[in-house]
C-alpha cells in the first residue's frame, strides 16, 4: 500500500462516522417535526368499503355504501365524547351553509339520544347521518379516532383522509381545493357514475 492510498483510506475511515452521524441527525431532526399519530391511510384511492348502518334519527332506516356514491362529498367521523369534534362543528355548519355535501358518521357514541341532542342544539351540517354504534363501520374505513374526514369522489372512491379537525386553514389549503376540483369534474361530466378501474 502506497502512502497516498493509505492516507485516503484514513480520510474515508474518519469521514464515515461523521457522514453517518449527519445522516442520523437529519433523520432524527425530521422526526422531531413529524406527527407519529398521523398514519397514512391505506384506503386512499380505493372505493368506499361495503357496510350497512342505521340512520341516527330513525334506526329502522338502513344505509349502505351506496349512500356515499353519485357525487363528491365529505364523510365526517364524529362523536359527542370528542372535544375536537365540538371545536370543528361550527366550521362544518358553515361549510354546509355554503353547499358542501357532508355525510356524518357517528362513531361509538355514548348514546344515540346524546348524539341527536348534539345535532339538535349545535346544528346538523350533515345531509345524511350514519349511526355506527359498535364501531364496525369505522373499522372498515380504518378510522382510529375522531374526528376524521374523508374526501370521496362521485364514483365513490376515497380521495383523501384528514385526521383531526377541519378548520379554515385545512379547508383553504387542502380539502377545499380538492373538493372544488371534484365538483368541477362532476358538474363538467354531469353525473357520470362510471367507476374507473
Amino acid at each position: 500500500m502506497t502512502e497516498q492510498t493509505s492516507a485516503s483510506w484514513r480520510w474515508a475511515v474518519l469521514a464515515l462516522p461523521l457522514l453517518a452521524f449527519l445522516l442520523l441527525v437529519g433523520f432524527l431532526l425530521r422526526g422531531l417535526f413529524s406527527d407519529p399519530t398521523e398514519l397514512s391511510s391505506a384506503l386512499v384511492g380505493k372505493p368506499v368499503p361495503t357496510f350497512t348502518v342505521p340512520d341516527i334519527y330513525d334506526t329502522s332506516v338502513i344505509h349502505s355504501e351506496q349512500a356515499l356514491r353519485g357525487r363528491p362529498m365529505l364523510l365526517n367521523v364524529w362523536a359527542t365524547w370528542c372535544p375536537t369534534c365540538r371545536a370543528e362543528h361550527e366550521y362544518l355548519n358553515q361549510l354546509a351553509a355554503q353547499g358542501v355535501y357532508i355525510v356524518g358518521l357517528n362513531y361509538k357514541d355514548d348514546s344515540r339520544s346524546k348524539a341527536v341532542d348534539w345535532l339538535n342544539t349545535l346544528g346538523d351540517p350533515y345531509q345524511l347521518n350514519l349511526f355506527d354504534e359498535s364501531g364496525r363501520v369505522a373499522i372498515e374505513f380504518g378510522v382510529y379516532g375522531a374526528p376524521e374526514t374523508f374526501v370521496i369522489d362521485a364514483a365513490g372512491r376515497i380521495r383523501y383522509r384528514h385526521v383531526g379537525d377541519v378548520n379554515e386553514r385545512v379547508w383553504q389549503q387542502v380539502i377545499g381545493p380538492m373538493y372544488s376540483e371534484l365538483m368541477a369534474d362532476y358538474n363538467g361530466t354531469n353525473i357520470s357514475m362510471e367507476p374507473q378501474s
Binding site: 398514519l39 397514512s40 391511510s41 391505506a42 384506503l43 368499503p49 373499522i139 372498515e140 374505513f141 380504518g142 382510529y144
Partner: peptide, 8 residues
C-alpha cells in the same frame, strides 16, 4: 387489518 390501517 393492513388493508384498513396500513402496514402500521
Amino acid at each position: 387489518m393492513v388493508a384498513r390501517y396500513g402496514d402500521f
